[in-house]
């Protein structure tokens, strides 16, 4: 488990990062949403990405997952520049993501959502489909099983047949996670997965994320509130105004005066929020 490792980390994984972002820049109408951002994601780690609203966290994830094309800079995944690939090609390489604003297939059941997420685990296309169950049966059974397992993993096994749009927002977050996990990605980009979750749900989510890291996955976790990310990340990237302010261990980042100043406006606010969070936890 990542947390039990020595603080210096595993030198081998530091040598060859799974994902390497270099000088990444995205201009929207002349305004830099992301401005020369560089960082590495070592394999098998959970890295946090934090920053105030509008600091470029979601844009960074959109750039890595192919929803935006970088204005300049590069994203290297396993040594390959993926900066200009369309989303489905990036997904095929083993990078999946969730969305800050839920993007579930609302009219479909929870189970069907995850089954669609298993797209990359299957191979059959239109030609095979025309052959019917005789051709596709074995693969379909396998995909159904994978989807069932992923739903169980996030604890939504009992909600399989409910339409996604009828789930609570907390369940929706978990369903997005299941839909991403069923593809068996190597790198998972999580855009504020704890938004709208209550404290108990956030704790469960943290456990799930740590168990994924145990299983060898690499995670980039965007979090607006620091509560979740401070507990689970082995390293944290702080974005402010589209730029990397600092990268460090949670303990360092938490006490960094610049982070407190820029990220939260003032130390006063930060202390108040912290008290509020801890108070909520006690309840």
């Amino acid at each position: 488990m990542a947390l039990s490792m020595p603080a210096s980390g595993d030198p081998k994984s530091d040598d060859k990062p799974l994902l390497s972002v270099a000088g990444l820049t995205k201009l929207f109408g002349g305004v830099a949403a992301v401005d020369r951002v560089s960082f590495d994601l070592p394999a098998g780690k959970l890295i946090g990405l934090i920053g105030p609203n509008g600091s470029g966290k979601s844009t960074t994830i959109n750039l890595i997952s192919g929803l935006h094309r970088p204005t300049s800079g590069a994203v290297h995944y396993r040594g390959r520049n993926i900066g200009n690939l369309p989303p489905h090609r990036i997904a095929r390489l083993g990078i999946v993501r969730t969305f800050q604003l839920l993007r579930l297939f609302g009219d479909l059941s929870a189970f069907e959502n995850v089954l669609i997420g298993a797209h990359l685990r299957g191979r059959h296309g239109f030609a095979a489909a025309c052959g019917g169950p005789l051709v596709t049966g074995a693969e379909e059974r396998r995909l159904h099983e994978l989807a069932g397992n992923a739903l169980e993993f996030v604890g939504l096994g009992g909600r399989a047949q409910i339409k996604a749009k009828l789930l609570t927002s907390g369940e929706g977050r978990l369903l997005e996670l299941a839909r991403a996990l069923v593809a068996e990605p190597e790198l998972i980009l999580l855009d504020e997965p704890a938004a709208g979750l209550n404290t108990a749900e956030t704790t469960i989510l943290a456990e799930k994320l740590l168990s994924l890291v145990d299983g060898g996955k690499t995670l980039l976790l965007v979090d607006h509130h620091m509560s979740l990310v401070m507990n689970v990340a082995s390293s944290i990237i702080v974005l402010v105004g589209g730029r990397v302010l600092t990268i460090g261990a949670p303990g360092e980042v938490q006490v960094d005066a610049r982070v407190i100043e820029s990220y939260l406006g003032s130390g006063e606010v930060y202390r108040r929020r912290r008290v509020k969070h801890e108070g909520a936890r006690e309840l």
Partner: peptide
């Protein structure tokens, strides 16, 4: 968008 990032 969601279909694309799933790999479709």
């Amino acid at each position: 968008t969601a279909a694309g990032v799933i790999g479709v």
